[in-house]
Simulated scan of single mutants.
Amino acid sequence: MVLVSADLLIALMERTGDGRPVSVRELARVAGCHPSKIGHLRTGERETAEEGEAAAIARRLGVDLLVLWKPTGRTVEAPAEPSHMIAVPA
């Protein structure tokens, strides 16, 4: 999934569907990812997340999935991740 807008993510984190803010750490815990991934999404250094992560983030923020994310696939090409963010084999 491709993030629609880093600014939108930040705004939704400041006031979620229940009216309370959510921290980077809490959002990462809910999404099952490392807090740095949420931080990189917020700064625009990263634009993508796995579908399960994206769904968990949208659910926690209290918005529909497609408010915050665009699906990738045949019609929307996923942007390439910066080389310093690509995982290295173990």
Rank of each mutant, 00 (worst) to 15 (best):
R60N: 04
L65I: 15
D18R: 06
R46T: 08
E14H: 14
E26M: 11
A90L: 05
R25A: 06
R46P: 05
A28D: 08
A78Y: 12
V4F: 10
R46C: 01
P21S: 04
A87G: 02
D64Y: 02
G17W: 15
E53G: 03
P71A: 13
L41E: 02
E26C: 05
R46S: 10
D7G: 15
P79W: 02
A54N: 03
E45S: 05
V88W: 12
C33F: 03
E26I: 01
R29C: 07
E51G: 08
L41K: 03
T16C: 07
P21L: 08
V88T: 15
L27G: 10
L12P: 01
A56L: 03
S83M: 01
L65K: 11
R60H: 07
A58W: 06
G73T: 08
G73M: 09
R74T: 08
R60D: 00
L41P: 10
E53T: 02
E45Y: 08
C33Q: 08
A58G: 00
K37G: 01
D64R: 13
P35H: 06
V2I: 15
P89N: 11
T16L: 00
G44R: 09
R60Q: 06
L9M: 14
G17R: 04
A31P: 06
L8H: 10
E26L: 04
G44T: 12
L8E: 10
E81Q: 06
A54Q: 04
E45F: 15
T72K: 07
L66K: 05
A49C: 05
K70F: 14
E45H: 11
A11W: 13
G73C: 15
M85D: 11
G73F: 11
G39P: 04
M1G: 05
V22K: 09
A11H: 09
V76W: 10
A56T: 02
E77T: 07
E47C: 11
I10S: 15
R29M: 03
A80L: 13
I38T: 04
G73Y: 04
R25Q: 11
P21A: 07
V67N: 00
L41V: 02
A11P: 08
E77A: 09
A87M: 12
C33V: 08
E47K: 15
E50Q: 10
M85V: 05
D64P: 12
A78W: 14
A90D: 13
R59L: 05
G17L: 07
G39V: 12
D64C: 06
E14A: 10
L66W: 15
G39I: 04
S83K: 10
A31S: 00
G32T: 03
V24P: 02
V4N: 11
A55L: 07
G19L: 10
V22Y: 08
A54T: 01
M13H: 11
L8I: 12
D7M: 12
I10W: 13
A58N: 10
D64Q: 13
S5L: 05
L65C: 04
E14N: 14
L3Q: 04
S36P: 12
M85S: 08
E45C: 10
G17C: 13
A56C: 00
L68S: 07
L68M: 00
V24F: 02
T16S: 07
A55T: 01
G32R: 01
V76K: 12
R25P: 00
E77H: 14
L41H: 03
